[in-house]
Design a protein around this nucleic acid. Structure first.
Lengths: 230, 230
DNA sequence: TTCATAGTTCGACCGTAACCGAAGCATCCC
DNA sequence: GGGATGCTTCGGTTACGGTCGAACTATGAA
């Protein structure tokens, strides 16, 4: 017997509440210091340090030294996708965290998923892009069309530099609150940065929430109009 | 903070080696008794019973009483998909089980993924079905085409009864060995049963391997021809 | 009824891992 | 240099959970 990969190790890594909290905090896409992560998990710095070295050994997070700080972030996109997946599963089993303040409609509306837009607005964006034939869905992957490339470039996205990287341009990511897919991959990341750079939306501190400005929201909804319901 | 679903509980459930082994054993799609699962995990019956009640409480498995036996199986398709996902992730981190006997090329070729075909042959089948326009990939979901419906019916699949159920007909499932998608959902399940019923392939005992007979393999490969590489 | 098999529950044991205080490095600032 | 900050390492405590033996329940067979 004993066939197949070892899922227990990863389960155990994610299974500790303190570590799960840190990973969730890192889903904000920010690189956080050990002290910040300790605060997010509600434990002392020493304990956090021990947890982080385990997460690092398991290739779930990576660290970058910057001055006397150590900035931790998720190891790669795959970790983000897996965590979002797990959240979807947990939500489907009715496993919500105890101290879930308000039901957080704003979190369902627009939030950051590691490095791209998620929530109602994220799903809506992908829907629109497919309806507008900016993206085509082939087999199980998403492909940017020629006309889509032009529109993205028109928005100010440097596709050239994006495609140079080895990371896939477009990926789907299952949204735990909407139970449908939104756009991940380097294009998903680039689009979110664009929104932030242009000031259409802002990230809230210490949260995954994305807050659109009034005019930014109008522009966004105009740009990614949803086709009338069939 | 504390926003979002609780992933730690699920992680902890999967994180124990004994439980992970049981879940992996259940990925064979068979309903197994507590004793069989104890054997698969290498623990005593008492311990297994305790683990199983936890898995049941966490809605990862369900049990059916049949005489004096209790047959355990995965709670639903979602659990199977999640586990396959986790295996893919674990494999990508190089986390293989210690006592992995032979590299198991046969397992990579064709195996059962909870209730549908996975491995090289599973991926190949979906590829072919899309190329032959039996299935179309829209947005992030798979849709059976009209001509596809006819072909499936021609094979002897009762689509009517499949669509009556609330489960989705077609779903993608990420294959951990191929790193691409294969067909899940009730159609995926029905197709595998068909292969087994027609005697094209057999399930090996105590394993996830699917062994095609010589003539069955020919028929399968003929039916799901792969388009010439572009 | 009696015996055998399948499984759960209880109790006790034990190991591991989470946790924190204190000390030790490393980096930056003055 | 001296002092402050950020983080790691060490050591020791504690608690939780996995484990199994033994006793108990339930179903089936003789």
């Amino acid at each position: 017997m004993k066939e197949g990969p070892d899922i227990a190790q990863i389960g155990a890594l994610i299974g500790d509440p303190a570590r799960a909290n840190m990973l969730t905090a890192l889903m904000s896409g920010r690189a956080l210091t050990a002290t910040e992560l300790a605060g997010a998990a509600g434990i002392t710095l020493q304990t956090a340090s021990s947890h982080l070295s385990k997460l690092e050994a398991g290739k779930l997070v990576r660290q970058r030294k910057l001055g006397r700080h150590r900035y931790f972030s998720l190891f790669d996109d795959d970790v983000g996708l897996l965590l979002e997946n797990l959240m979807g599963f947990a939500a489907s089993r009715g496993l919500l965290r105890q101290r879930l303040g308000p039901k957080d409609p704003s979190l369902r509306k627009a939030r950051i998923c590691y490095n791209h837009l998620a929530g109602d607005y994220g799903v809506r964006m992908l829907d629109s892009m497919i309806a507008e034939e900016i993206i085509e869905s082939r087999e199980d992957e998403l492909v940017l069309t020629d006309s889509g490339s032009m529109r993205m470039t028109g928005l100010g996205i440097d596709l050239e530099s994006l495609t140079k990287r080895r990371r896939p341009l477009c990926r789907t990511c299952l949204d735990w609150s909407e139970r449908r897919s939104h756009l991940a991959g380097s294009l998903g990341e680039a689009l979110l940065s664009l929104f932030l750079d242009k000031g259409w939306a802002k990230r809230e501190a210490e949260s995954r929430r994305i807050a659109f400005t009034r005019s930014g929201e109008r522009t966004f909804l105009d740009l990614f109009a949803v086709p009338p319901a069939t």
